[in-house]
Each structure stands twice: as C-alpha cells, then as structure tokens.
Simulated assay, not measured.
Amino acid sequence: MKDTSSGDHRQLLLIDDDPNLILLVKDYLEFRGYEVITAGNGREALEVLERNLPDMIICDIMMPEMDGYAFVQKVRGDSRTNWIPVLFLSAKGQSADRVKGLNTGADVYMVKPFEPEELVAQVESSLKAASRLIQHNTRTGDGQPKIQVAFDVELTPTELKVIQFVARGMANREIAEELNVSQRTIESHVSNMLGKTGLHNRTELARWAIESGMA
C-alpha cells in the first residue's frame, strides 16, 4: 500500500545519469507520496525547469553534458529557481567534495550509497526549511518576486479554508482531519486551485495566499 503521509504530493526533480538509480530512488520516493520527475543530466534538467518548478531538486554531480555543479550554479543564478532547495547525491565523499558541493549552492550533500530513509528525512527537512523561508521572505518583502495570479480568480469558501491551511504548512492529511473530510477531497481542492491560478505547486499556492492576505 502506498504511503502518502510524507510527500503529500510535493513535486521533486531527480537528476542522475544512472537509470538504475533513477528507477530505485523514484520508486521509493513515489511510494512515500512524492511526485517525481526525472532528467539524465543538468542540461535536460534545465529544460524541465522551463516547464515545471518543483518543490525540491535531487541531483547527482558527475554527469555528461552538464554536471551537477554547473547545473546548480544556473539554478541559483535564476530568480525563478534560486529558492528551490537542492540535495546533492554523489559517490565522492571526501570533506573537500562536500565543501565544494555546499559552496556551489547545494543545501544538503549525501554520499552514495545511502539509506533511503535518510534521503526521505533530508527531503522532508529541506522542504520544511524552504517553507519557513518563503513565509518569512513574503512577510518581510525580501527575496523572491511576488506570485502573479489573474485578479479575477475566485475560490470557493471551502477552497479558501484549504489554502489557509496550506499556507500554514499543513499536509493534505492534516487538513482533511481538520475539516473532517477525506484526504482525496483535499487533494481535489488543491488540484482545482492549481488549475484556477496557473500555479505549479503547493509552495506557490502558499506564497500566493500569504501575499494576497488570504492567510
């Protein structure tokens, strides 16, 4: 049975040139409730980022065409993507390698082979930290440009309740318990709001709710 208690349908971008690792990590993260999109190298990943803004990036370092270092430098240099947390997965485990990875712009550095549970824990920790930073920057007026949504978007009373809980960092499961409905119902409301607003993920919904005074 699929475990949806952790990922809560957050979208992750997984980048690695090893198809076996991609398959294993993707399956494990999807089992934990995450939506996972993949790329084989940094150049492919940049093309993905033109269409999607994931909640987090998990990236190998040594890859053909564009390695992890060059990719992360591109991510950190773009205001659309510089807020996205990045986790490096690398077979290079020396202290100097870790320092270089973190100095390049990664938030977390994990060495292969790794325990899947540790990867999930690092992902969850990074997503929570990013959510706190986004809320702080939104309230202080620093950091990212404001979320752009059409002025005539109308939410139903229930959607307004849901987006307020999303802005507080609550998972779909927790919101469902609060409103005494099924988790699937909350997922449907979130999906409807993403469709109405043209936003890409829950993080952007939360920012929009805070910036527009709904939360």
Rank of each mutant, 00 (worst) to 15 (best):
M1A: 15
D3P: 00
T4V: 13
G7M: 06
D8I: 01
R10F: 11
Q11I: 13
Q11L: 15
L14S: 06
L14W: 05
L14E: 02
P19E: 09
N20G: 01
L21R: 08
I22L: 10
L23C: 14
L23E: 14
D27G: 12
L29S: 03
L29D: 07
F31R: 05
F31I: 08
F31W: 14
E35S: 11
E35I: 11
A39S: 02
G40L: 15
G42S: 00
R43T: 03
L46I: 15
L46W: 08
E47H: 04
E50H: 12
E50G: 04
R51P: 02
N52V: 13
L53E: 15
I57L: 08
P64R: 14
M66Q: 08
D67C: 11
D67Q: 06
Y69L: 13
A70W: 05
A70G: 06
V72L: 07
K74P: 03
V75Y: 09
R76A: 00
D78P: 01
S79T: 09
T81F: 15
W83T: 07
W83V: 07
I84Y: 02
L89A: 13
L89D: 11
D97E: 07
D97L: 11
R98L: 06
R98T: 06
V99G: 00
T104S: 15
A106G: 09
V108F: 10
Y109A: 07
Y109P: 07
Y109W: 10
M110D: 03
V111M: 06
K112H: 01
P113S: 07
E118M: 11
E118S: 07
V120Y: 08
V120A: 02
V120H: 06
V120F: 14
E124I: 02
R132Y: 13
R132M: 07
Q135K: 15
N137V: 00
T138V: 15
T140H: 03
G141M: 05
Q144T: 01
K146L: 06
F151G: 10
T156C: 03
T156S: 12
T158C: 03
T158I: 02
L160I: 04
L160Q: 13
K161I: 01
K161T: 04
V162E: 00
V166K: 05
R173D: 06
R173W: 06
E174M: 08
E174G: 07
L179A: 02
N180S: 04
V181Y: 08
S182F: 02
T185K: 00
S191D: 13
L194R: 12
L194A: 05
G195E: 08
K196C: 09
K196Q: 14
T197K: 15
H200M: 11
T203V: 11
A209C: 06
G213Y: 11
A215R: 12
A215E: 12
